[in-house]
Design a protein around this nucleic acid. Structure first.
Lengths: 169, 169
DNA sequence: ATTTTTTACATGACAAGTCACATAATTTTT
DNA sequence: AAAAATTATGTGACTTGTCATGTAAAAAAT
């Protein structure tokens, strides 16, 4: 006999299987797992938040940058960077100066202390990137990035946002 | 002549190009853009948060579920579900009852009001899934999911988390 | 049968991210 | 040149998500 409980378990498992092919959910889960891994790695070597690490990395690689430039590189909101800079100023990892030719911008520069923290942290983070480079061949990476490109175009398409207007008209 | 400003812009653009091939960053950005799109769609038809919508969807598709089961289906933390249930109880979208055979679990069930809200919302969300199904062929979806599988395995691999121990030994 | 371990859930604390709005500086229009 | 539009940054309010901890119930070990 099929109990109510068994029946419920069957429906649960069916739902779980179905959601395994939900691209939105799968990408979200993968991104969050990735973020969690980065967080743990950063914690294992020091005291940096992910946002702080990304800022240090950008500045170490590209030299002084504005808030907007870093947000653009990281494909994130400028508010996130803007809010993190004061903490990093206090810690002495960066300095900030008003732009010479454009006085709206805030040019952020890595200090020797910031460079030192970056050096200590970059080892483990480089190993991570190396490991993922070993896990995917160049060709696979190209394909993966192409699919992500298309997905990103899809979710950034404003047309979908107006579907409801047609639907309710 | 090359000004300091032009030089900085060159470094910025080089960094931006390099980061376009950073899988971690690209997946994170794609996932966040997807979440933002979902949020906007939900806002356009009603007042549901993403978490609330996912709970309604799961319950509508699979019938009564426990908090842990929903967290598992959504590949998310149970805390997120747990925190959202009280709000949905207040709104009258769901009911919760202690499990009959396991008194630890909380069985959440959709109410007629919840079903009604789900119905109103599911149209736009179905259109979105349909649109993404049109944007990717079955074969492409399979490849995409396979790559995501591998990426997820990679970021969930605990071995990487111990690399630093070797490094500092 | 009692002790130990595991599991399900709730909750406080915090990080990450978005949005809307405010302000100041720059650029474009007129 | 003055007015209008745009851009860069900062900030309050909020959602999403993780982690650690506590509690109660169930399962496993002794």
């Amino acid at each position: 006999m099929t109990t109510e409980h068994d029946d419920r378990m069957d429906r649960f498992r069916a739902r779980q299987r179905a959601q395994e092919r939900n691209l939105f959910g799968r990408i979200a889960a993968a991104a969050l797992a990735s973020r969690t891994q980065a967080k743990r790695l950063l914690k294992s070597v020091g005291n940096l938040s992910i946002t702080e690490w990304r800022i240090l990395w950008d500045l170490a690689e590209a030299g002084p940058l504005t808030v907007t430039e870093m947000a653009s590189i990281q494909r994130t909101d400028h508010a996130l960077i803007s809010r993190t800079i004061p903490t990093m100023l206090e810690k002495g990892y960066v300095t900030a100066a008003t732009g010479a030719r454009d006085r709206r911008v805030s040019l952020v520069t890595l200090t020797p202390a910031g460079q030192s923290v970056f050096d200590e942290t970059s080892t483990i983070m480089s190993q991570r990137r190396e490991a993922v480079a070993n896990a995917f061949s160049e060709v696979e990476l190209d394909r993966f990035l192409a699919l992500i490109d298309r997905f990103e175009q899809f979710v950034e398409d404003p047309v979908l946002s107006t579907l409801d207007i047609e639907g309710t008209g």
